[in-house]
Every structure is written in C-alpha cells, then in structure tokens.
Design a protein around this nucleic acid. Sequence first.
DNA 1: CTGAAAGCGCTTACAG
DNA 2: CTGAAAGCGCTTACAG
Lengths: 347, 347
Amino acid sequence: MASRAKATILDIAREAGVSKSTVSLVLQGSGLIRPETATKVRKAIEDVGYVYNRGAANLRKAHSNVIGMVINDLTNPFFAELAVGMERVFQAAGVVPFIANTAENPVRQEEVLKSMMEQGVAGLIVSPARGTMPGAFRRIEAAGVPVVFAMRRLPESRIPAIAPDNRRGACLATEHLIRKGHRRLAFFGGSSDLVVYQERLGGFLEACEAFAIPVVDRTIVEGETSRKGGMACLETALAMPEPPTAALCFNDAVAFGVILALRKRGLEAGADFAVVGFDDVAEAEHYSPGLTSVAVDTAGLGERAAHVMLKMIQSRTTRAEDHIGAVSLVVRESSGPDRSSQMGDAA
Amino acid sequence: MASRAKATILDIAREAGVSKSTVSLVLQGSGLIRPETATKVRKAIEDVGYVYNRGAANLRKAHSNVIGMVINDLTNPFFAELAVGMERVFQAAGVVPFIANTAENPVRQEEVLKSMMEQGVAGLIVSPARGTMPGAFRRIEAAGVPVVFAMRRLPESRIPAIAPDNRRGACLATEHLIRKGHRRLAFFGGSSDLVVYQERLGGFLEACEAFAIPVVDRTIVEGETSRKGGMACLETALAMPEPPTAALCFNDAVAFGVILALRKRGLEAGADFAVVGFDDVAEAEHYSPGLTSVAVDTAGLGERAAHVMLKMIQSRTTRAEDHIGAVSLVVRESSGPDRSSQMGDAA
DNA sequence: CTGAAAGCGCTTACAG
DNA sequence: CTGAAAGCGCTTACAG
C-alpha cells in the first residue's frame, strides 16, 4: 500500500497522470480543478499513502497553522482546564495548538519558546513562569509573532493579558469572611514577585480597609502556591499571639493545604477556622468540607485567550486589549462564622 | 535591532562577510570553522535578530527533532505526571515534546495525529482514546514513524506499549482486602472495551480465585472512570440484597467518587466500607481518609516511554519490546477491616 | 578552513 | 482548467 520512501506530490502527479501544480491545487481544495480530475488525484493520494508536508508548504507560504501554548505547571488541574478551553476554539478555526510545559522554570521556558519559534508558530499563548525576566519576550515581539499572556502577566509588559478580576475576587471573598463575623483575617500563600499576588492581596486589603479592620488584625503570610505551602502558612499563623480566625488563600491548592493542616491539629475548616480558596477548581466542590472559592471561569478565559490570538494573527498585529474576566464567589462549607468573636463579644 | 522582515542565513552571511555555507556550519556547531570566523558570525546572528527556521532545515535533512505526545485526558493529573516524566528525558536529549489533548475522542485524535504527522514529528507517544479503531495507526506505521503506547494499548496491535503491571497491582490490592477479612468484594468502574480494564479486572478475579471467594460474592459494576462514575457504582452495589463490604476501583478518580458517595450516606470509607484505588495520584495521600492505592510510578513510566522512543528513532525501527512497570500497594486509611463479617461470625 | 551549486517538497504567478 | 518554472531557507557534498 504505502511505499517505504515518503511520497511527494510528484509521486501523486505521476500516479494520476497530471502535473504537480494540479495536485497542489487539489490539496488546497481549489475550485479551479475539474471534479473528475480532482477525484482521480484524490484516489492517487490514497494509493501512494501520501502525508502532506506542512513544513515545506509553510516555507513557501511563509505562515503556519500551529499555535504554541506555553504553560508554567501542567500538573495543576487549573491549567489543564485552561488548555481545554483554548483547544475548543482553536479546533474550530482549524489551527493546532501544541502545548509545552515549563515547570515554573524560566530557563526551560526560554528553551521551549525558542523551539516554538524555530518551529514557525503563528502565535504564542503563555502563562509565564515565576521569575521570568522583563525582556524575555522582546525578541519574539520583534519577530512580529503575536503573544498573549493567560492568567499571569509580566510587570511592565505591553503584551495583552487575559486574566480574571483578581482584585475584585479577593475583595468579594474577604467581605464574605467579614460578614461572617471574622475580624482577624489572614492572607495565605503566594509571593510578591507575581503580579497576580499583588492583585489578590490588593483586593484583600481593600476589603479590610472598607470594613475598618485594623492593620494589626491583618496577617499576611507568603508561601509556596501549593498544598505544602498552605500547611506551612497555617502553622505560622497559629503560632502568633493573636492568631487569625479566617484566611483567604492565594489559590485552591494553598486552601487544601490549610484544611489538611487544620485536620492534623484536630480542627475543622468551617467550624474552627474559615478558609476561602481562589480559582474554584473542580476538586473544590468535592472536597471535605466543600471549599468556598472564587470562581474564575477557567475554560472561558482559555476560549477568550484563543479568540484574541486568532484576531491578532488575522489582523497581523502584536497589540490587543487586556481582558479581565468576571469572577464570583462560590460559598460552601469551609467558610463558617467566627466563633471566637462571639466569645469575645460576650466578654 | 531586529529587522521587520525575517532574517535568513543569507542576511547573516552578508552582515558577517562570509558565505551562507559558513553560517550554516556555525549554526550546527561544526568544528571546521575558525574560531574568529565563528565569533564574527555569531555576532551577526545576534545583530540581525535571526530565528532558525527548523522547517527549512528539516526539509533538507529529512528528519526532525520534535516528538508528539498525544494524551487522552489532560485534565486527569495522572497524565500530566506522565508528561512531566517524558519531558525530563526529552529535554536532556535535545528533543522538544509537543503535547496535544484528544479529550477521549477518536475523531479528535485522528485530527491531532494527522497534524503531528504533517508537522513532521520524529515519533509519537500516545495514550489512545477510548474507542480507537484497530487500524488507526496503520498509516503512521506505514510511513515509518515510530509509535509507542503509554499506559493504554490497543487490542491487537504490535505497537510497543509501556504500562504498569495492571494485573499484579489489582491482585495485590484484592489480596489486601481479603486479608482484612472482606469476603464480599466489588470491582468498580471502567468498561471492558479498554485493555487496561481487562487486566485489572483479571487481577481482581485471580485473587478471588486464589482465596476461593465464591462467584456470587464478586460484584462487578462497570462505569465511567471518574468521580461521578464511582458514585454511581457505589449506589448500584449498595442496592443489592447482599452488598459488598469492600471495593477495588478501576482508578483513583472512581475511588474518590466512592468515598464521596459513602459520606453522603453518612458512612466512612475505611470504617464502614473498604476502598482501594489504582494509580496513586498525588491527591490519594492527602485525601480524607487517605486512599489506599496501587502505585504505578507514573513519572518513571513516562521516562521509560521516552527512552524507548529515543532508541527506536536512533535505530530507525518501528518495533520495540513492551515494558511492564513494577507496582506496589500503598496502604492508607481507606481500606479498614471488615466489620460486618465479625457480626456474621458471631451469628 | 570557506565558497558555489544543487536540491529538499511545496505554492504561486504566468502562460496556454 | 492545467503545465512549466521559480523560489521559500536551509544543508550537503564538492571544489578549492
């Protein structure tokens, strides 16, 4: 059936008794070819086991149909969801997204980016690794390849970013905690070198300000954005003389860690200490107790990012507007009322 | 700095005052070039903002450095771990893995595979989607591109597969349950169109046989391989006249579902019903209660698959041996002793 | 050590 | 509607 050596359009042409131009036209679905000829050519394509060589075509056409997705942590289900959203719209547009993982490593990211560029991607959607240098994308921009940031952005970059309304989400969550009676509040996890951190912490502080929570009653503990980081944050906070009674966590992973650390101490999230997460990953709903979290419509953001990218490619620009996605608070069992404050009121 | 139009080796040659052959040699790190010349060329490469065009190079060289990873469900953290393992060895070998997700859809898989082939991948590592037709990889094999299956395999395929020892894992887990005193056992989740299912179920039955568990006391409930599927399985089993007291689940996702469904009924995994999962994803350790599960060394399997692929490419073959990875049972709290049987003994 | 020339597989005007 | 010819950016013998 298929020959050992790779078949080319010339083999097809020979097989079908036409010129290679005709084969190329058929391949591109041109209407210029007589139907009978096209059928004959298509049969020949089958017979020789032809595989289209997109590299050769791109070389000639000078544009490609692959878009790179560069993600900082593929093991975080959050990013997998984002990827799924993007793939949905790319598929419809006939473009193929290739995903690569940087594992939160700027050096690896550099390599991955280089590879994608060499491969001739039409555009790049990236969630930059922590510690990415401000100039990391200059060459790519200079080459005229559109880039959009998803979920994360770089401090002073003009690259368009698609992200949830972090500040508002954090603000909503903090208000919720305050209305539940909590007066000593913590913000757990993350570090200030991430723009997202600054936004989320900003929302937390804004709500504290609005409800006149004194500065001494605001505890901020930086830490890894993982379960482990969350566990450490709780330990640190509980060792304080006047520990907080509730915490907004940088993300759900941190929140899960806090819940675990509470359990290890024989405490229960919701009853003994209120916990709120961020991102509302699928697991939040099924956790025990159910995790109150800020929903960010992850797949929707992925779709949006893909659309922006498609438009940039089409209009041959590297500029686009930022997009801030709506957020909402999903209240579950992990964020119960303050008990200690009732005692405090009584005293 | 960088020019608008894409720079080519000709631009570099002009800038550096050498021929384009010399530039090409420098690009390939050839030792034939005088150091001073190489330095001069490298400077020119910087100055013109050159991006290597791998497509053009591959066209000439007729081989590429990209390997495709085609995964059936990127949102399952299990596959992300597998991908991470593969990336580790590919990175060291200087090859770039591009990941694509088929979302368990054979049609989508067809498209993704076609795209990868057109892109000129050197090889393909795939975890085939459910319902993949036996002939789905014939064309790819015929084209001489090496394929290895990871985690899953196809019924009658000669494509090498890298997978854990499913049968042994299931057997170990079932023995564990029996030694804990359970005599009415269930196998939850999965469906018989997956080879993996047959292997895991086979191990379950083998252990039942070895310990002379009567056939009437073996409950097999097929179902989706997700939390939801697990919840449904438990409901089905508990509605039986003589319900099982323990279950081996097709994978951890199903097991998490079973634990949730138990909790909804006011029962606790471990104390009221024993649950064992399969895969030992990271979450298993942190779940409440901790999930007993069969550890399969996911990242290790990923590395192994990558190594096999590299060797196949190097030796220009599409054949290789299967690799069956060792497994072990990690016992946690979810698999407690049978209580009902003590009552039964007393009666 | 370096240069001139051919060719990888495709597309694209240009004739006919 | 179809064919002959040039060229995309690179690598690879082959001379020198």
